[in-house]
């Protein structure tokens, strides 16, 4: 099987042209995390652990939902089938279709950091955690987009994801249930926030390794599921 950068860049360029003509559709997913970051900067707090909230929001909303919208639209308009029946390989299409949403998410994460005026603790580990989160939420976005029949349906299918992953801690506090609380601690967003606090308190690899491992497992699992769901979309039942 050959890999063609030309084909991947053709898909990316098409997505850029398409998105420019439909930019308003993703504005809310971009402005929500940036708005939250702006609110944080006004609070005057320099507590880096607070940075986890807009970043998680950027990853969940911008990453997953932009990706879900892109995939669902391809499916709804029957253009995904045309791509799948072209010589572009599965990997080329997946990479091409994920590039734009990944880029937008990274820009929103960077934007959130700058707007919130907070110092990023442990830049190296922080970058690794961002990359793992990106794989997790772009994969989730791909899955949501492919299982939804229409773009509208992505909001319904993706809403539980948004609530659970973004407001995990809040749900845990509200329910006051030991089992639920334990499950929530294994969410990648919770690992991300916890690791961020540890890094801020000058913790190192040994203190955050289980959080990193948890995020790595989430990244691998979600990527595998996305590949399986994507593979199935080539065929009719």
């Amino acid at each position: 099987m050959t890999f063609s950068i030309r084909r991947v860049s053709a898909i990316v360029r098409k997505d850029v042209k398409d998105l420019i003509k439909n930019a308003y559709a993703i504005l809310i997913t971009i402005f929500l995390p940036l708005g939250l970051a702006a609110m944080l900067s006004r609070s005057g707090s320099d507590d880096a652990s607070l940075l986890g909230t807009p970043i998680n929001l950027a990853l969940v909303i911008t990453g997953a939902f932009v990706q879900a919208t892109i995939m669902a639209e391809e499916k709804e308009k029957n253009t995904l089938r045309a791509l799948l029946l072209s010589p572009a390989t599965r990997m080329e299409i997946m990479l091409g279709k994920s590039f734009l949403s990944s880029l937008i998410t990274i820009l929103v994460v960077i934007g959130s950091i700058f707007i919130s005026k907070m110092q990023v603790p442990g830049l190296f580990y922080f970058t690794i955690m961002i990359l793992l989160s990106l794989i997790i939420f772009i994969s989730f976005g791909t899955i949501i987009g492919l299982v939804s029949r229409t773009v509208m349906e992505t909001s319904i299918v993706g809403l539980p994801l948004l609530v659970i992953f973004t407001y995990g801690s809040l749900i845990s506090t509200m329910l006051d249930n030991a089992v639920v609380s334990t499950i929530i601690t294994y969410l990648p967003t919770e690992s991300f926030s916890s690791a961020l606090i540890i890094l801020e308190q000058n913790g190192g690899f040994s203190e955050i390794k289980w959080h990193l491992l948890n995020m790595l497992i989430w990244a691998i699992s979600s990527l595998i599921i996305a590949v399986i769901v994507y593979g199935k979309s080539r065929f009719d039942k």
Binding site: A10, K77, T79, R81, A82
Partner: peptide
């Protein structure tokens, strides 16, 4: 079920392929 990209021009659609 052969769809087209509605927001793109005829040329842009064909250019991709």
């Amino acid at each position: 079920n052969s769809g087209l990209y509605d927001r793109l021009t005829v040329y842009e659609n064909l250019e991709l392929f």
